[in-house]
Amino acid sequence: METSLVLPASDGRLVTHRLGRPREFPVPSSPPTSRVAFAAAHVVGVPGDRTALDWDATLAYRRHLWTHGFRVAEAMDTAQRGAGLDWATTRELIRRSVAEAHAVGGGIACGAGTDHLPPDAPVSLADVRAAYEEQGAFVEGEGAQTIVMASRALARQARSADDYREVYGQVLRQLTHPAILHWLGEPFDPALRGYWGSTDLDEATDLVLELIDEHRDRIDGIKISLLDADREVALRRRLPEGVRLYTGDDFNYVELIRGDGHGHSDALLGVFDAIAPAAGAALAALDAGDVARYEVLLAPTVPLARHLFSEPTYNYKTGIVFLAYLNGHQESFSMVGGLETARSAVHLAETVVLADRAGLLHDPEQAAARASAVFAAAGIT
């Protein structure tokens, strides 16, 4: 039976959209081997409580990602770090997720940053170092790989590239296992403008490469979230042998993961949270050497990804949680801090259309009913 729903359009009209049939994505029998693929996972809020998490639904979503072959990148910006998730809750999220990973044999790495420092109080470089060290020690103590996240506090306090060298050098020397560096660009967090000591991205890249060269035995790789495929490829080609480039480019991931004659990017992507069935099947095809099928499976997700991460990019999390709700992975469209309201009804309506075109609404009747309820609550019927 055909399923349809009424959606708000950008010109103020209401239009009827008929949902297509969902695509069938084979579930991989094991994690990919030709690429390392992390999905940055979202968290599930509790209706009426702006700070609490629905732990059952949050952990169930990690199991969903592991089922499709991904490692989980925990407590990242996709999980609302710096956007409502406090350190106390983050600690519990890391603790529970790592325990779950160990129980099911899933891969996991967790973000360590400085976000427990007061956002408006003066801090020193020593405070920033100590904050990184505290969080890094906690992550490693729980048994997870560390992702050294970009720090708003460091961006405020640093006066030169040397300050970044000092802080990152000290932090990396304190870690026991190789970490993943995280370069989060300004579109994802305007507070990180000028990170690495310069607004000139060529100068910033040079500093990053110097850090990696100096501490290469303590660095597994670096995640780049600049939404600039050419810059990512150029950096990838300059990395020392054995240091991975984890793409964080939610616009150009298909070609960056596929690679070229000089190499490929691995992945640490927020969009994988939303497109896990398609992406997991595509990576399995790539493992089998079937590049054409990889493209057929993954390319239709790109219009959806570009919409989810459209400006203001940092609000992408709202669309990701909305899709998880439509697909039955959580019982409410609720986010920490009430960020479910960060995108307009028109933006959410286009999310429905593009997810449908990508074949990612696995139960169209359920998706239509849930989307209609969201729009009705916003006064759109």
Rank of each mutant, 00 (worst) to 15 (best):
L304N: 05
R18P: 00
G259R: 09
V104T: 14
R357K: 13
Q366T: 12
A279P: 01
S372Q: 12
I320L: 14
D77A: 13
S332Y: 02
V233W: 11
E74C: 12
R21T: 08
H215Y: 15
L192C: 08
V104F: 11
L268D: 11
A126Q: 14
L245T: 00
N315C: 09
Y316H: 07
Y294I: 06
A358I: 09
L361E: 08
T318P: 03
P28D: 03
F70K: 12
E210Y: 00
Q366I: 05
L354S: 08
R50A: 13
D249V: 13
S10N: 10
D115N: 04
W87Q: 05
V27P: 06
H17F: 08
R152M: 04
V36R: 13
T89A: 11
P22A: 11
S198F: 06
D54M: 07
R193Y: 05
D217C: 09
L172P: 07
Q157S: 14
V243N: 03
A79F: 08
D356E: 06
L298C: 05
A324N: 10
L85S: 03
H307G: 02
F38Q: 01
E255Q: 12
G221K: 08
L59W: 12
G338S: 09
D49P: 07
A37Q: 04
W55H: 06
Y195R: 15
A288R: 14
A373M: 03
T51P: 00
V98R: 11
A276G: 09
A282F: 03
A267R: 00
G328Y: 09
P31N: 12
Q157R: 15
H362W: 06
G261Y: 04
H68A: 11
R81D: 00
I257V: 15
I219P: 10
H262W: 10
E340G: 08
A378G: 02
A158H: 02
L286C: 03
E140R: 04
R50L: 07
D127S: 03
A150R: 01
S4K: 13
E74S: 12
G319L: 00
A288F: 04
R91I: 01
L5V: 06
V302H: 02
T114Q: 02
M335W: 01
L125N: 01
A284G: 10
A37D: 02
